[in-house]
Design a protein around this nucleic acid. Structure first.
Length: 727
DNA sequence: AGCACGCCGACT
DNA sequence: GTCGGCGTGCTC
């Protein structure tokens, strides 16, 4: 027996616990773990997964305190240096424990303290003749047929295994029959014939600028709806793939993924494209993530969480609709995936393309300062297409029917009569935003939040949109007993009901979060719209994003004014982006679209800026205002929000933080104030706003209070939000 | 965050 | 008598 001398080493491990410190473990084996490796370790009475941050042959700690790791699963490639660097940056900048940042970076299956059984080995399967294969499969075996169809292209084992638990069994049979072959080839060897596509002069210039870049550069691709930003992404990605590199594409919402994925698949039929978003199962997520990590996936298409995906041959990053608020996570690690993407591109020395028709003012400012290169797409790419005509319908003292101006109704009627589709946009779901008593003025309010209960007539419920509280619609006023309770204001359900009365012949379809909760139902509704099975659409925000409806020519915007008097300084910026985005839904092909905006404040300067449809001018004027008021991007803000059942405790905690921060250099503070929603889910909320001219003093100052947030005060919970998008 | 340990109220 | 409330403290 030859005894192999077993070496012992010490590992510094980051764990998914809300603690800033790391933990050391010993490991005895001839294998030496690498930084970035996943380990399973004992932690107090439980078992946790962690990430190795350091390997050393010695330790400072008392040997008796150090425990041995439970396992080195070796079920993923170690996290690469750039992902670790990005995680460290997020941990420091957003004031979040590194272990928890790394947990966010990993797919759920790899956060768990058990070995992930990876569907190895890597190689590709392909059917020599799909027709022959299908001929040997029963028509009543849809999963087998689906698997067979996938084999038209070279497929990795993992992707096939995800089809069904029996997939590998079937595959084995087919391999034995000779219908399918396995090649242990590296994916880079898969040829990528790239279809040539035409680009107009603007697009070509944009593509040239991006692909001619060596190393890092950030581009702001600024172009109105229909100007062909996607074509620029596609060609930049084609260039990247041609160099055997991988592309990372970030999109705002999961709603957008299938549509964009289809377009990418059509353009790159032989490329391996994987999606990464929270709509996938844990299994699909980890399979796709591993495919990217091993360098097999050519294109990763995902939401903000995909920014952390390890990609050994990363060649370009695209952030589509970069202004979209969903790139900022609103809980836990409150990171901006857009900013993280820029950081990562810099780290990897690759170009990053931020695309938008209405860039975030932060991005616009960076472009104006020359930190980002501004590429403008001036023209609509679709032949003959024109920007929509935006019209203001003044509502002041106007005679209305169910909140619709007579002029609006007439125009809608004309459009419907000529066989076109009409979209009524109202950014409020439910029937009415509040139920009131006509006698005593009582308003239905949530008991746990400082918010009104929204009336959902179809479900016969009053609902709080902030905490999920629900109750039955009261038969009479709880205060005075009056039975005449009236809905105030309008939501999508009420508009839908009104339109049913006004346009009895129209095929009305309502699209909002309430009726698209089920998986695939939004896709189904969008299909109905495209197929012309509906011609009068009522919808919220979610209608506005990226969906093209060729026969939609009129958009009516109700209740637009909400953003004008927002307490948040970003109100106008958001409103402009939103209105321009909805407006973009109108008239994509051939005819000029028409947009009617009903407003009670038609002479507000905002609307003249909107009518000009000149976002650059609007953004510049907004920047002037921001500069004069020391608001972002001319200052860096952080929000400390404390919650407690007793508001006084929350406030006292912030006062304490304030005193700790008081003498921090180059940092200013406001007084603690009640949060914009004072009460939420039974907690009183207070907030403290901290600001600085630049990032570093602010980050340094916040480091002082981090230990105070960690040692959680029994009754007060406090969160830190750096670069908050809502105040 | 979990999870254990620990010390005081209403129940088989 | 003990089941269980959540305060406090620890995790390499």
């Amino acid at each position: 027996m030859t005894g192999i001398l077993k070496n012992s080493c010490y590992l510094t491990v980051a764990l998914d616990v809300p603690l800033t410190r790391f933990f050391e473990y010993s490991f005895t084996s001839e294998i030496v773990p690498m930084v970035g490796d996943r380990v399973i370790v004992p932690f107090g009475p439980r078992s946790l997964a962690g990430v190795v941050l350091g390997v050393s042959s010695a330790t400072q700690l008392d040997r008796s305190k150090i425990r041995e790791i439970t396992a080195l699963p070796n079920d993923m490639p170690p996290l690469p240096a750039d992902v670790l660097a990005l995680s460290r940056f997020c941990a420091e900048y957003y004031g979040h424990p590194l272990g928890q940042v790394l947990a966010t970076a990993l797919p759920v299956a790899l956060r768990q303290a058990k070995v992930f059984i990876s569907p190895e080995p890597s190689g590709v399967y392909q059917a020599s003749d799909v027709g022959l294969l299908l001929a040997n499969i029963s028509a009543r075996a849809p999963l087998q047929r689906r698997l067979a169809e996938m084999l038209a292209l070279p497929m990795a084992r993992a992707e096939l295994a995800a089809v069904s638990p029996s997939a590998m069994k079937w595959l084995k049979t087919w391999l034995e029959a000779g219908w399918v072959s396995f090649t242990a080839a590296l994916p880079d060897a898969i040829p990528l014939p790239l279809a040539a596509a035409l680009a107009n002069k603007d697009q070509q210039a944009a593509i040239d600028q991006i692909v001619d870049t060596a190393g890092f550069a950030a581009f702001l691709l600024f172009g109105i709806t229909g100007s062909g930003k996607t074509e620029v992404y596609l060609q930049a990605i084609a260039h990247c793939l041609a160099q055997s590199c991988q592309a990372l594409v970030l999109v705002p919402e999961i709603n957008l993924t299938p549509q964009l994925e289809a377009r990418f698949r059509a353009r790159f039929p032989t490329a391996r494209i994987v999606a990464l978003h929270s709509g996938l199962s844990d299994k699909e997520r980890v399979v796709n993530w591993l495919s990217a990590s091993r360098g097999e996936a050519h294109i990763v298409l995902g939401t903000r969480l995909a920014v952390f995906t390890p990609m050994p041959r990363l060649g370009v990053i695209v952030v589509d609709e970069e202004h979209d608020g969903s790139f900022k996570q609103q809980e836990g690690l409150r990171y901006s995936a857009r900013d993280a993407a820029v950081y990562r591109a810099h780290q990897r020395q690759v170009p990053v393309v931020l695309g938008s028709a209405t860039p975030a003012l932060e991005t616009w400012h960076n472009a104006r300062q020359g930190r980002y290169r501004l590429i403008t797409l001036q023209h609509r790419a679709v032949g003959g297409a024109m920007p929509p005509k935006i019209e203001i319908i003044p509502m002041h003292r106007a005679k209305t029917v169910e909140g619709l101006h007579q002029a609006t109704l007439n125009i809608m009627r004309d459009h419907l009569a000529s066989g076109q589709q009409v979209l009524v946009f109202i950014n409020r779901r439910g029937y009415a935003p509040v139920l009131s008593c006509g006698e005593c003025g009582w308003l239905g309010e949530c008991k746990r939040c400082s918010a009104k209960l929204v009336l959902h007539l179809k479900e016969r419920r009053l609902r709080c949109h902030h905490c999920g509280y629900e109750e039955q619609i009261p038969a009479a006023c709880p205060d005075c007993g009056n039975q005449d309770l009236r809905p105030l204001g309008q939501g999508t359900q009420r508009v839908e009901a009104a339109l049913e009365g006004l346009f009895p012949d129209a095929k009305i379809l309502r699209i909002d979060r309430d009726n698209t909760r089920r998986k695939g139902s939004l896709q189904e509704m969008l299909r109905q719209v495209s197929a012309g099975e509906a011609n009068l659409l009522v919808g919220t925000q979610m209608m506005a994003k990226g969906h093209d409806f060729p026969s939609l020519n009129l958009v009516v915007v109700l209740n637009a004014d909400a953003g004008l008097f927002s307490v948040d300084f970003r109100g106008e910026e958001r409103m402009y982006a939103q209105l321009l985005q909805v407006a973009g839904r109108a008239g994509r092909a051939g005819t000029q679209g028409r947009v009617l905006i009903q407003t009670g404040y038609h002479d507000h300067p905002f609307y003249s800026q909107l009518l000009a449809q000149d976002y650059a001018a609007f953004a510049d004027s907004q920047l002037d205002e921001r500069r004069s008021m020391q608001l972002p991007p001319f200052a860096v803000y952080a929000l400390l929000r404390a919650e407690a059942e007793d508001g006084a405790l929350a406030k006292a905690f912030l006062v304490e933080l304030q005193s700790v921060l008081a003498d921090a250099p180059s940092v200013q503070m406001f007084e603690p104030i009640v949060a914009s929603m004072q009460r939420k889910a039974g907690m009183e909320r207070w907030q403290l706003l901290v600001m600085s001219d630049t990032r570093h003093p602010l980050v340094n100052a916040l480091k002082r209070v981090m230990p105070m947030l960690e040692t959680r005060n029994n009754k007060v919970r406090c969160i830190l939000d750096v670069d908050p998008i809502e105040l």
